[in-house]
């Protein structure tokens, strides 16, 4: 079977700084995670794969074609960049509509594609607002929408879960389960989404919860078998929960919220990414 992505003797350097050196790689259909320690060249590799950088030596092809200087190939590729960048003055819908038109869709088709993509990432309600009014997580979901709107054969995601709240992380994981993926993290791992997701689900997690009354919340959490520890924030307005079963924890937390009486301002899960998996696996 022809590889989806193939790198041969791929090297890239910036002046005296080496980005990647002599990479040989084949990625076939399925879901692939790209992980490694800081400085391993993951970003450089992904930027070359997305046609943003030109290899100094060697070649990288996708579907058998070179990527750099080959815009036609992006009919088949979706790329979600890592930068928190956006056209601040545009509305979310205007931005996605523009990209849909640039993908060659007519007005009506583009509107339908934009609506579908925005609906997939849960931004239909805020689609008419200017992007400058979006939260970090909303902008991240908008970037994801920009990469999936044309239903690409290959989707490349650079840190797609960063800044997204835990509930949307689960939704995004479900979404990318359907699509071939290059997922940029911190360790190289190749396998299917269940394996990556299994790693993410099973390694110890920390979940930070901001609440004006953290002690009653802690009392409701401590004692559950999936909670391995609770620490209160120094300012007395939050707590950090450690869990080995992230999904169970969130299900339980949602139950508590539904019961009422829990005043929660924010939930973040800073280690819910492949860096944390990498740290866990190497015993950091």
């Amino acid at each position: 079977m022809t590889p989806v992505l193939k790198a041969e003797k791929l090297s890239k350097w910036y002046g005296n700084i080496l980005g990647i050196s002599d990479i040989h790689l084949e990625i076939r259909s399925g879901i692939t995670g790209l992980l490694g320690p800081n400085g391993a060249g993951k970003s450089t590799f992904l930027k070359i794969a997305a046609g943003q950088l030109k290899p100094k030596l060697g070649a990288l092809t996708i579907f058998g074609e070179p990527v750099y200087g080959n815009p036609r190939l992006f009919r088949r590729i979706g790329f979600c960049p890592e930068h928190d960048s956006a056209y601040a003055e545009m509305s979310g819908r205007g931005f996605i509509l523009l990209l849909a038109r640039l993908h060659g869709f007519t007005g009506a088709e583009a509107a339908a594609k934009a609506e579908k993509a925005l609906g997939t990432v849960g931004l239909l309600d805020s689609q008419e607002r200017a992007i400058k009014g979006y939260s970090f997580g909303m902008r991240q979901r908008l970037r994801l929408a920009s990469s999936i709107l044309h239903e690409p054969e290959l989707l490349m995601l650079d840190e797609p879960l960063r800044g997204v709240d835990p509930l949307w992380r689960i939704r995004i994981m479900q979404l990318i389960n359907e699509i071939v993926l290059i997922h940029q993290g911190k360790i190289f791992a190749k396998g299917d989404i269940h394996r990556i997701r299994g790693l993410i689900d099973s390694h110890p997690h920390q979940v930070s919860i901001r609440s004006p009354r953290p002690r009653p919340l802690a009392a409701r959490l401590i004692g559950n078998e999936f909670i391995s520890g609770v620490e209160f924030a120094a300012d007395g307005r939050g707590l950090t929960v450690r869990t080995n079963q992230r999904d169970h924890f969130f299900t339980h937390l949602m139950g508590l919220l539904a019961e009422g009486g829990m005043d929660i301002e924010e939930i973040t899960s800073p280690d819910d990414n492949l860096q944390a998996v990498f740290d866990y696996l190497i015993g950091k």
């Binding site: 815009p71 009919r75 960049p81 640039l102």
Partner: peptide, 15 residues
């Protein structure tokens, strides 16, 4: 400056 160039260079449109 806004790092938005990536959106215009990852669509099937000549530069």
């Amino acid at each position: 400056d806004n790092k938005t160039l990536v959106y215009l260079t990852t669509v099937p449109v000549p530069r």
